[in-house]
Write a protein that binds this DNA or RNA. Structure first.
Lengths: 352, 352
DNA sequence: CTGAAAGCGCTTACAG
DNA sequence: CTGAAAGCGCTTACAG
């Protein structure tokens, strides 16, 4: 059964609307501005080869404005071969890290007249298929990949040839990476702990096969080395609270002498604080804890968590820029975001 | 400067590809299956009016499979007037509440052959424009609105006629609401506190103008009333840690006699635990705290937080179903998700 | 320099 | 019942 009002309403803004409807077409704009469709299209798309009087240009712009003209995305995609949209592949939307990258990407893409379509990889196999469909159906022009792991199924086949950029998780040798300077951030964390007098440090890392986690780990070892200290202990855990808690108990069992720990992510750090407390080593007295990345939550933990802040939004922005450059035929190479990290001191770290 | 490999690669999967390219068109499928485009299209779209031998049907399906055929979304949108996509408007992606709704919506939409495009309202004015563009450019067929507040600018104009559903934040009288049974959840929370012997309860609510928050508040008062207790104190705060903390200090200043508090959201609850501790009333000894909604984080807070779990994923799923029904011309009416909530007891609540 | 016309890849009345 | 043909709303060589 169909409700009349609703039925009518539902159709009002549809693509194939009656001329009297709300949707204005290019031909309407052209008619209103007294030019041909070609000219209207070229003016609106800022075709540099078009030479017309400034007055005509203004007339077209005004007509478009007045009619609330918005080109039909499907028609444009069909005619030009460009979808005007980018896909962003993320492993886990519930992790604030990714929602911040997403936010940056979103805003930047919008400013450059692209949409962003988010795909979460977490639910499993389907995600990969979904991306393939997205690409093959011409819905997106390029991929922002925040889910790269070695041997990712997506990139063994045709899709490797599709425009893409790796965000946050660099793939060695791809020359398509956009990521934070993890070494720098790790150095800052280690130096903070060192400045408080800690000498027996440890690192709670992310999963072994996640490159961004591996980079932090390398940064930690490099920082120790540069201060004349030997390699420090590392335990790996998943990027969630449980992973942090579990890693902490392994660490303190094997290395009870550790007094300061640098944690790979904020979600893990919540688990670290929890486990340290449960094991009779509450921060900061029992264990100094500093985490990679910051968020509002950190201020309200017990104790408030000392962090190395990062610029995840900028990461999203720069990734969009890099991908669009690629679409425009430019080779970009890796972009590393440096000089933005700094230590936010709270109460989870204290002098030894 | 253009890298040859990249240039070639970038074009490979484009819409306007050479016939020898990777992208198969409907005409390719038709040729391969030895039928006309019309038949191929009808078979693939399961047109019920089409009568053909089962064998032909199978041949078309196989051809499509073999060629990896994926219809061009723009062409389809242009010809049929349906975009095959839904927009989801959310106030804040970094809040896990919304990422869970999103996840549910995503998976369900995919199963029903729709994409979902996320729009975050937080950054401000632009979001509304973005939605308008999305609609007018024919990119989406309907709206899942998780950002409703009274007087939302979107719905004062044309867009009111566009298919939409309100998710999580019901709009009275719209008959297009999909939401959790907030009353039920609030009753559970109040009863839990009561069962522990608490009699002086309070509620830390969300912003006054957010309907879902208001519903929880009403549920809290209703539950008190049904147990023969008078109206309890309520303080409002924003839906974040700071809002919870700030509300707590106001509450304890004005109502120091309170022993148990029901908090409107998990993010606020983090701030509540923090403030209670800072004010010398640490949970659960100084104050019993139970929160609406659950998440992995809750287990790792100090103390681990007692929660009323909710089924936010289902909320997303049901919203998609309701919207698709609407697109198909059916009137749905409100859908309230009940009987799914239950109390997850942890250490933030204790007998009085 | 500009306009008429073809064409992008589909869907779907409509004629046979 | 099925196929040929028109048309969705754009963009863009190409002819004038």
């Amino acid at each position: 059964m169909v409700d009349d009002r609703q039925g009518a309403g539902a159709d009002r803004l549809r693509a194939n609307d009656s001329p009297a409807g709300l949707r204005a077409r290019l031909s309407d704009v052209a008619a209103e501005a007294n030019v041909t469709k070609s000219v209207a299209s070229r003016v609106l798309n800022q075709d540099p080869t078009l030479k017309v009087r400034e007055e005509t240009r203004a007339r077209v712009a005004q007509a478009a404005e007045r009619l609330g003209y918005q080109p039909h995305s499907g028609a444009r995609a069909l005619a030009s071969g460009e979808a005007g949209a980018l896909a962003l592949l993320l492993p886990d939307l519930s992790n604030p890290v990714f929602s911040r990258i997403l936010r940056g990407a979103f805003v930047r893409a919008l400013a450059r007249h692209y949409m962003v379509v988010v795909v979460e990889e977490d639910p499993g196999v389907e995600a990969t298929e979904q991306v393939t469909d997205l690409v093959r159906s011409g819905r997106v022009d390029g991929l922002l990949i925040g889910t790269a792991r070695p041997g990712h199924p997506l990139f063994e086949r045709d899709l490797a040839a599709f425009p893409h950029v790796f965000v946050n998780r660099p793939v060695a040798g791809s020359h398509r990476n956009v990521y934070l300077d993890f070494r720098e951030a790790s150095a800052l964390a280690v130096e903070h702990l060192l400045s408080l007098g800690h000498r027996r440090l440890a690192h709670i890392a992310g999963p072994v096969d996640v490159t961004s986690a591996h980079e932090r780990e390398k940064g930690y070892q490099a920082a120790l080395a540069s201060h004349g200290l030997g390699r420090g202990p590392v335990v790996h855990g998943t990027f969630d609270e449980e992973g942090g808690a579990e890693a902490t108990s392994r660490l303190l069992r094997r290395h009870p002498e550790v007094t300061g720990v640098y944690v790979s992510s904020l979600t893990q750090a919540v688990g670290v604080l929890h486990a340290a407390r449960a094991l009779g080593r509450p921060a900061p007295g029992g264990l100094s804890v500093i985490s990679f990345d910051d968020s509002p939550l950190a201020r309200y933990l017990d104790p408030p968590l000392t962090c190395v802040s990062t610029s995840l939004e900028e990461l999203g922005e720069r990734a969009v820029d890099a991908l669009i450059s690629q679409l425009e035929g430019q080779l970009v190479g890796d972009v590393v975001i440096s000089g933005q990290s700094n230590v936010v001191r709270r109460q989870s770290t204290a002098p030894v």
